[in-house]
Design a protein around this nucleic acid. Sequence first.
DNA 1: TTGGAAGTTGACATTTTGGTCAGGTTCTTC
DNA 2: GAAGAACCTGACCAAAATGTCAACTTCCAA
Lengths: 216, 216
Amino acid sequence: MAGQKAARPSGKNPEDRVGARNREKILRAAVDVFARKGLDGTRIQEIADQCGLPKANVYYYFSTKQEIYTHVIEHLLTGWDKAFEHITPDRDPREAIAVYVRAKLDYSRKHAAESRFFANEMLRGAHFLSKQQKLHMQRVTRERSAVVEGWVRDGKMAPVDARHFFIMLWAATQFYGDFEPLAANALEKSKLAKADYDAAAAAITTIVLDGCGVSA
Amino acid sequence: MAGQKAARPSGKNPEDRVGARNREKILRAAVDVFARKGLDGTRIQEIADQCGLPKANVYYYFSTKQEIYTHVIEHLLTGWDKAFEHITPDRDPREAIAVYVRAKLDYSRKHAAESRFFANEMLRGAHFLSKQQKLHMQRVTRERSAVVEGWVRDGKMAPVDARHFFIMLWAATQFYGDFEPLAANALEKSKLAKADYDAAAAAITTIVLDGCGVSA
DNA sequence: TTGGAAGTTGACATTTTGGTCAGGTTCTTC
DNA sequence: GAAGAACCTGACCAAAATGTCAACTTCCAA
């Protein structure tokens, strides 16, 4: 009875091999558990349970817990700069920023586990990010900051510091997903609904674009 | 030789007793370790090492790890609403908000461990916050939101959603301390200096107060 | 069809760690 | 100065978790 499993496409090409799919399964489960419990709080047994594999089988694919963790990071960083693609020179800044905020908030809401995992890793000092990964993030940030700086040069925006501007947007948009309990508590709700994210998007966009209009 | 320790004021009043000071020492060390490692990542032995007490002595004062954790939360929440005191109805909103941002960023920088500990707890779902503590935070938020709403009514500010406004300020100001590696990386530095916090304060204040001045 | 590679798994060895305890010292009070 | 409270601590223990292994099944290519 060992090795019993659901019907699968017989593995002609490597991507279809049982191994590839099991790796995926493990990684998916791992994101979730790591996000909730952190690296040390996570028990391999729990990852195993969550993806319906025996623990020893998990160890067949990954030799240590840290190896799983590292792979998860690698996996996640692929989608990190996705929302940035809305920030392009040809676009109207007003619209581009609004769309960016929406996209980020959407990601925070729909991929809360990934987002939290990432936040957790940062909170811990980002020890598991490779030099290369950091450089990638730097490059992407630099590129998109240049776009904002271009807008400023063209007189389409006030002269804001582009990097701090992005940091502010990251912070605001991640907050709702990552620190959901705090945000919900502040809004006096037990948990956030989609409507709250919509309100957040509206508020952030308004404030960032127009300021809070205080009389000078 | 057991019980050997430095000269101390003989304990006339309870606050001076060895116990009180040791509890403090343990709690101080605990904030630091918990902030770096999280609840599960923290070994009592490490807290013990950090405050120069044998592990068994730590257990003399606190019977479980969670008890230490809970005490730390209690301890921290005392200072949570400190920065809020700048938000008062009689003040000019422009100035009050600027000062608030400064104060929060200052706290993030100077008490990075506390701030991270708190973020960590939120990230994990705030399981260890008591109902009472949540209510306290709600009340404080509600009060200060009312102040902002007052400013809006008086025509001193544009009609922003006060709660989301505060959430945004929390997010932005905590980010630099809590996610230092990410912020530093974005600014292409190895670590943040005071000057970076100053720049952050300036940028946040400008953006929030005046918006990024995009042409409508 | 057959041989080796890939995958599976229960049981086990090892290490780590939270927590206990008994026997001590030091402090305070009367 | 004596008794009891407060405090200290090395040596343990039991539970839990990581990681190993050897025997097994399934898959695939020739």
